[in-house]
């Protein structure tokens, strides 16, 4: 039984280099805001988890995102560009201005390690947002230690301590544990939202849908807590 007054726990699996994850983040934030505004005792606690969409990506990929999709995923260049144009348009609809012309496609494992460092230092939510903005909007290279340390400093992390942790790969096992847990849940794509450890929501749902799902879980909790044992 979950305490009626405890926040609803939402575990989110995502990758920094996942366009739907950043869009889904915005929509989830809007949806959880709607849910929280619907009444008292509607709190949500969020924890992000690592998921690498393309762990075979080199740190320094020569070429743009469409080139990557063409070379690594076998998608014709014209179709890849159309996909990027569509996702850019949808991102703009939630206030995110993706800049694929300047995006630095890279391996994201080091960024995930940095995110675990941020989690341990109480800055996970701020740093996750900073990473995604850096990657999709600002064209920053999130596969490099110096860039990650600089971004970490912007959210109040110690850049020297973060640099040491990244060079020693202190948090790589935390990344792997997140990915193993995702596999145990059967998660194949991201973003993916696990609510109260019992309910699974896949993809960048509309804000209204997120709000409805949270409301549904909140009511299910209340029903559990008011059931009289036989």
């Amino acid at each position: 039984m979950t305490s009626q007054n405890a926040p609803i726990k939402v575990d989110i699996w995502s990758d920094i280099a996942c366009p739907w994850c950043y869009i889904g983040k915005r929509k989830f934030e809007a949806g959880s805001g709607l849910f929280a505004g619907a009444g008292e005792d509607r709190d949500v606690e969020v924890e992000y988890h690592s998921f690498e969409l393309s762990p075979d990506t080199p740190v320094d990929f020569e070429g743009g995102e469409a080139d990557f999709l063409a070379r690594h995923k076998g998608i014709p260049a014209e179709q890849a560009q159309q996909m990027l144009d569509r996702v850019t348009s949808i991102a703009a609809s939630v206030g995110l201005h993706y800049d694929y012309d300047n995006l630095k496609h890279t391996n994201t494992v080091l960024a995930h390690e940095a995110a675990h460092f941020a989690k341990e230092h109480g800055k996970q939510l701020e740093f996750t947002e900073r990473l995604m903005k850096a990657y999709f909007v600002e064209g920053r290279h999130v596969g490099r230690v110096d860039e990650l340390a600089s971004l970490g400093a912007e959210v109040g992390l110690d850049p020297e301590e973060l640099t040491r942790a990244l060079e020693a790969h202190t948090y790589v096992n935390d990344v792997r544990e997140d990915e193993q847990l995702a596999a145990s849940y059967g998660i194949q794509g991201v973003p993916f939202f696990v609510i109260d450890g019992k309910y699974g929501v896949s993809g960048a749902q509309d804000a209204d849908t997120f709000a409805q799902v949270l409301e549904q879980v909140w009511h299910l909790r209340n029903e559990e807590n008011t059931e009289v044992p036989a």
């Binding site: 990758d15 996942c18 366009p19 739907w20 994850c21 869009i23 889904g24 969409l53 393309s54 990506t57 999709l69 690594h72 995923k73 998608i75 996909m83 569509r86 996702v87 949808i90 145990s184 849940y185 059967g186 194949q188 794509g189 991201v190 973003p191 993916f192 696990v194 609510i195 450890g197 019992k198 309910y199 699974g200 929501v201 896949s202 993809g203 960048a204 749902q205 509309d206 849908t209 997120f210 799902v213 549904q216 879980v217």
Partner: peptide, 23 residues
Amino acid sequence: GLTPLQPLGDPNAEQCIDGVCEV
């Protein structure tokens, strides 16, 4: 030993699978 997740929401919402994020 994880309890299977009960799916909620729209099953067709956009997501990225294996590095591909098609609309």
